[in-house]
Nucleic acid binder design. Structure first.
Lengths: 337, 337
DNA sequence: GTGAAAGCGCTAACAC
DNA sequence: GTGTTAGCGCTTTCAC
């Protein structure tokens, strides 16, 4: 019932192979044949069967995207990059197939990375973050010799690249922005210190302060929990212990937003009395009052870069590590002093 | 180099067809044969070639998800349901392939829905929202006889279902919450009235007010633009023209958050002086001060339902329309009076 | 219970 | 330039 290449060939009075060649714009086909074929394709409503094509050519033009299989309550991060990935891959004639993989290490066996790849002869795959570093998928990614890009995890091999956000640099940028506006006594409210990203952000803070020749005090820094409430509580305590601070950098926007509300309710005006800057570029920072300055990495940029890394690998490139620098969004929560 | 069913057969000393039957747990295979095959599969690291399988069985266990191809600046909505879709489809042994489609009607031709489906023999597909109603893809969806689920658009046919959020009901729920807390003079700040969702939310507001026997006034309602700034400006104007209002329902959270900031800066305390409720369930509403009451439909619920609708269609069900009711999240921005 | 053989829709030698 | 043929990895009659 479905029309195949044979039907097109018959209609044209040509052989199947000529039609195939015409369809794939290869050399050695007459203009006349090409026209005949195009005509027949249109009339018959012929669509190439990608499966059959893949079967013989032993590649699929399909890219796997591995996402952590969360329970249905958790709000998965990172998924906004999916459309950018998809669109960028489309530029290279690649389609994207999504494979959820369990985050529970000892359940990882029925659906290994290798099986996922081989099942559909994937050209390569992208592992999105959300797995713990000890998850067996990373060991496998390193071992396997298929093109793989690990996002947010430092795996590298001949056929495996990784990409990370340069959080240290991002944090430095935030602090430098405060410094450039004349602040010197700058607080820092970080997330849980066991997280890698927090370590990096801390380094960024220290580095920027160090380069500015400022000897900061330990009680300028505080560890919190990335929530709005946490930010609110932390800023209140921070200002009690270190009342000389004129500004504060928050390791994420949520804490900054929480702190902003708290400061306002405390009668401390932002930015007139106190300057703050967040981190992440959450889209709601645009709508706070005052709009929050922050540091961000656009999903689009990230998505495009990831896709390109994978395409390089597919085209025979060697695995590499990439760090993407975020950029500053300067709004109105920082005042020049 | 890749190990095929032949290799397994050879290793077992069985024929290819027996191995195939064993692999697909069919009847008429001896226990011994099954064990032999399982053993060989393990030792050889054999993985079935889904493509070859699909080629002969003429189906793919692949589901297409059509997403609007946005420019790289726009922040695409709805993508957080993707993982839920994917996970639910996985329950039915279906994998998910993403196809971006241009939102520009007259560019829609090189990649039609039919081509996308036939190219990989998709079992069915899901069209995510983001296209204008006049987009040719919807006409095609209605015409085609492949299982299709349209999200947010009212297309229906024998093989095409649609699913929508019941915004009218959601809006009623929000207003009813205000009513239940004793408010009667309730304002409503809507989004742009040309949008369908705004019409529905308006109806919901009117219905709830009507059922409560309240004759509202036209200047209790105001049209805004779904932004935080818009919400801020609107609430200020609304309170000037209608100072008797004790509460307001906002057609989205952003406007409510903007308004919240404005009210606070105006010295109007929420909820003590004025109650507000938003719409959408944006996760940041949890972190505003006070936390914002709102109405939401969990992505997870939505994703699961969409996937199930499609599976029903694939299994031979008939197209139907589904409306999903959101639910209320009661927090602290509404006071009992 | 098992095997031989045909064929799914396509590409890629290899001939002509 | 074009046609013939083999074969990709699998399922599925049809024999035995």
């Amino acid at each position: 019932m479905s029309v195949s290449i044979k039907d097109v060939a018959k209609k044209c009075g040509l052989s199947v192979s000529t039609v195939s060649r015409a369809l794939n714009n290869q050399y050695g086909v007459s203009q006349k044949a090409i026209q005949l074929v195009q005509q027949a394709v249109k009339e018959l409503g012929y669509v190439q069967d990608q499966n059959a094509k893949d079967l013989v050519s032993k590649k699929s033009n399909l890219v796997g995207v591995i996402i952590p299989e969360t329970d249905f309550e958790a709000r998965p991060a990172f998924f906004e990059i999916l459309p950018y990935l998809s669109q960028t891959l489309a530029l290279y004639q690649k389609e994207m197939i999504i494979s959820p993989v369990t985050v529970v290490p000892h359940q990882y066996e029925s659906q290994t990375l290798e099986m996922i790849i081989r099942k559909r002869k994937l050209d390569g795959c992208i592992i999105l973050p959300g797995f713990i570093s000890a998850h067996p998928i990373y060991k496998e990614a390193k071992k396997l010799s298929y093109p793989i890009v690990c996002v947010g995890e430092n795996i590298i091999s001949r056929t495996c690249s990784n990409i990370n956000i340069d959080d240290q640099k991002g944090a430095s940028m935030a602090v430098n922005h405060l410094l450039a506006n004349g602040h010197r006594a700058i607080g820092f409210i970080n997330g849980p210190s066991h997280a890698n990203i927090c370590l990096e952000r801390l380094e960024g803070y220290k580095q920027a302060m160090h380069e500015a020749g400022i000897s900061w005090e330990d009680n300028w820094m505080m560890e919190s929990d990335f929530t709005g409430e946490g930010g609110a509580k932390s800023i209140e305590r921070l200002l009690q212990t270190s009342p000389t601070l004129t500004a504060c950098f928050f390791a994420n926007d949520l804490m900054a937003i929480g702190a902003l509300a708290k400061l306002t309710s405390l009668g401390i005006r932002v930015p007139d009395d106190f300057s703050i800057i967040g981190y992440d570029g959450n889209f709601l920072t645009k709508y706070t009052s005052p709009p929050l300055s922050t540091v961000t990495l656009h999903s689009s940029k990230f998505g495009i870069k990831i896709a390109e890394l994978l395409v390089q690998l597919i085209n025979g490139g060697t695995g590499k590590s990439e760090k993407l620098a975020p950029h500053l969004i300067s709004r109105e929560s920082v005042k020049k002093i």
